[in-house]
Amino acid sequence: MTTQPPAGTPSATELDGEAVPRLGWPVGVVSERLGIAAPTLRSWDRRHGLGPSLRTSGNHRRYTELDIRRVRLMARLTAQGVPAQSAADSVLAMDAAAVLEQLDPDREPGAAVAQGGAGEALGPHDHPAALVEAIVAAARALDPRTMAQLYRQVMRRSDVGRAWVEVFAPALRRVGELWQEGRLGVQSEHLTSELLQSELRAVVRANRLRVAGSPVVLAGAGDEQHHLPLLALEAELARNGVASLFLGPRVPAEALVSTLRESHPRAVFLWASLPRQRAEPLWGQLAAVDWPLQVVVGGPGWSEDIEVAGGWVTVTRVADFSTAVRTLLSGGGLSR
């Protein structure tokens, strides 16, 4: 006896072991399959253009597998708090490969739920990959309110260091890539970085009464223009009660050495993403330092072998943000 499929279910063929409907899936089947109410699916289709893309000979609309994947990603972003139109704009701008990448089982929110370092456990919709996509969607829509909320949400539920490594830095890279590909305007890139700067500085302000002791000097080497890693480091140090003297990007060697001689810090962190010379003037000028000073260098711009002419200076090269934080907190009497 042959069992007939339920009414409304499209006929299917086999492709790589999966049943693939010849005419796509009707809204009722998609609703049951994804657990999303049919009126919601119709609303997303009508208001935001995210709906079925096939039509039958009888002019009935049907969802393809790609349409269904887009709906799943839409549901993930809206669960993050991204406005529906912003989420739809982001999802519709992705090609099939990009949508599939975001829905890879290894990146599903429920597959590897991250735990917050200093706060509460991240929820099932707070997987880093989902948060990155939510920030990108807000950048695409030029939606500062949502973006700021996402930044705060991440920092409430995790320490700044983990937030930077798992969410903020990947989101900034993704926005930068989309800008280079011409898929985002430069205004989206500026908004993403400017709002993150504001939120990181808010962390510093919130911890201002807790910081104490000799400050760590934070500076970008020479003509280095990228300073968001420095701001993230300043925020994490403040969260740990460590004071900092933030000099920002493009600090000339002479100005840096002058600052060191005036403030006598126990440690200085220098960031460089652009290639630096092995024997640059700064290393020779550090001979003027006559107190124990730990110089921590981070970023891909530094050479592996740095020679400093100064018996009081110790140079440590760190490979990542977490190591930089640990080094600064444990060295030079900064551990709290």
Rank of each mutant, 00 (worst) to 15 (best):
E280H: 02
T56V: 15
L184S: 03
H127P: 00
A238H: 14
R250N: 12
L103T: 04
L247G: 07
R205K: 09
D104E: 14
R42A: 03
Q187M: 13
R250T: 11
E166N: 06
L329E: 04
R55D: 09
E133Q: 12
V160I: 15
H264N: 10
S198R: 11
R107G: 00
G331S: 15
G284V: 01
R22S: 11
I68N: 02
R69K: 14
S273W: 09
V315Y: 01
Q197C: 05
A118G: 05
P229I: 14
R266H: 07
T316N: 02
L150Q: 08
V99R: 05
V154M: 08
R261E: 14
R33Q: 10
M147C: 12
P275T: 10
V99M: 04
A235V: 13
R266V: 09
V251Y: 00
P252W: 10
G332V: 04
R156N: 09
D305A: 11
V216R: 05
N240A: 11
L77G: 02
W271R: 07
D67W: 08
A98C: 01
P215F: 07
V154A: 08
D89N: 11
R183H: 05
V99L: 03
L142N: 14
V71Y: 06
V204G: 04
E304P: 00
R174E: 15
R22M: 14
E108L: 15
T259Q: 14
R22F: 13
G333H: 01
G310V: 03
P265L: 08
L172D: 02
V216C: 06
E18S: 05
A97H: 06
V165A: 07
A87T: 09
E262I: 12
W291D: 02
L286T: 13
L15P: 00
R140K: 10
L184T: 11
V251D: 01
L245G: 02
R276I: 04
G81P: 01
E32I: 01
P128T: 09
F269D: 06
E280Y: 02
R62W: 00
R266S: 09
E189N: 05
L66I: 12
L73G: 13
P83G: 12
R55P: 02
L282P: 05
A12F: 09
A93W: 01
H190F: 01
E18C: 03
W283F: 15
Q197H: 07
Q149M: 07
M94E: 11
G8Q: 05
G24H: 08
Q149R: 12
P229R: 09
W302S: 03
V71K: 09
